[in-house]
């Protein structure tokens, strides 16, 4: 291997690693706030990539229909909750999500998206993927918020199974790739740097900074952190677990939607590609001990690099190497753990 190839692989690794890092952060966020391991996160990524590709191919963006179905289910559940028990209250707020979904779906079908340029396509894609988060939380997880960790995990996996087949229905079996954000190439001495790399790294860093500011400066961001730190305390401040759940799922959908847009020009994405991508985010999250954001992000970037270099050395064993790498990490965590621990 010469320096040029190493640099090329390094770029690949960092790009993928940055995206795994974003996903690892979303996974940690959702887990710490709701205790859900959000396996269907990968479907948000693949749905975003395929929606953007469909727009560029001039096909109708059908994701809106899934949103409409979910938001109607959510509305029905809200109405049932509202009329049940002593608390009879119908709120106009219940209509906000169906209204948003209606508008976005109508726009996605009516606008000539193919000709609107990449920025608007990306915006529209994220606007379509974003509501998937809160809707999934409302329909699937809110009714079982107090359930055991196993039940939450099973529902997350079942949601993944169902969403993959919805993906097949909406997007078909063919893979798709979008146009790169820009074709330009920079020379750094001898080395070739693709501008796509800079886009991915730049946007990932920007997103991480924005998230940092959200959690450090914004009252709602602090409320989410508070829920993760002490659920009882947060509840006693009037931060409802439902709101925290929806916001964290929404953020995860936003981040993974953006990741999907970023990854779409680099990798061919199929309706079922999301799972393996999100699992790499999970590996990052595990490296961070399901607790530390910076360690998880660094671990995810390292994972991207390992993946890129193993593609070069032993391409058919790439996935074997990546997932087997988890064993030493688990061993290290296992050795670091003292005594027996009771789960809460």
């Amino acid at each position: 291997m010469n320096a040029q190839i190493a640099l090329l692989l390094g770029q690949d690794g960092v790009i993928n690693g940055a995206i795994y890092a974003l996903l690892a952060l979303s996974i940690l966020l959702v887990f710490s706030v709701t205790r859900v391991l959000l396996i269907p996160l990968g479907e948000f990524v693949s749905f975003a990539a395929l929606t953007m590709a469909a727009m560029q191919a001039g096909k109708p963006a059908l994701l809106g229909f899934l949103l409409v179905a979910l938001s109607l289910a959510g509305l029905v559940m809200d109405l049932i909750d509202a009329t049940r028990g002593g608390a009879r209250r119908l709120r106009i707020g219940m209509l906000a999500m169906p209204a948003y979904v209606g508008v976005v779906t109508a726009l996605s079908l009516a606008l000539p998206l193919k000709d609107l340029g990449m920025a608007l396509q990306a915006l529209m894609t994220i606007a379509l993927v974003l509501p998937l988060g809160p809707l999934l939380y409302r329909v699937l997880f809110q009714p079982i918020a107090g359930a055991s960790a196993l039940v939450l995990l099973i529902v997350a996996i079942a949601a993944h199974v169902a969403l993959v087949s919805v993906g097949l229905l909406i997007f078909g079996p063919e893979g798709a790739r979008t146009e790169p954000f820009s074709d330009s190439v920079f020379m750094l001495g001898e080395a070739v740097i693709q501008s796509q790399t800079l886009w991915v790294i730049g946007l990932s860093l920007l997103l991480i900074v924005l998230l940092y500011l959200f959690f450090e400066r914004n009252l709602y961001g602090k409320a989410l952190r508070a829920t993760a730190v002490d659920r009882l305390g947060a509840q006693l401040m009037g931060i409802s677990p439902e709101l925290a759940g929806k916001v964290s799922f929404g953020l995860a959908a936003f981040i993974s939607g953006l990741s999907g847009v970023l990854i779409a020009p680099i990798t061919t994405i199929y309706f079922d590609s999301g799972f393996v991508i999100s699992l790499k985010g999970f590996v990052g999250a595990i490296i961070g001990g399901l607790a530390s954001y910076p360690v998880a992000a660094l671990g995810a970037v390292a994972l991207g690099l390992v993946e890129a270099f193993s593609t070069f050395y032993a391409s058919s064993y790439k996935e074997v190497i990546v997932f087997t790498l988890l064993l030493p990490v688990l061993l290290w965590r296992s050795l670091a753990q003292k005594g027996v621990e009771d789960e809460k």
Partner: peptide
Amino acid sequence: LNGTPIKDRIGQGLALVPETRALFSSM
């Protein structure tokens, strides 16, 4: 108050400091 969610009880002016204090310790 029967059946009222916690959030709304707080909205009506109830507050509880629990025995554990339930502070946001890392904040």
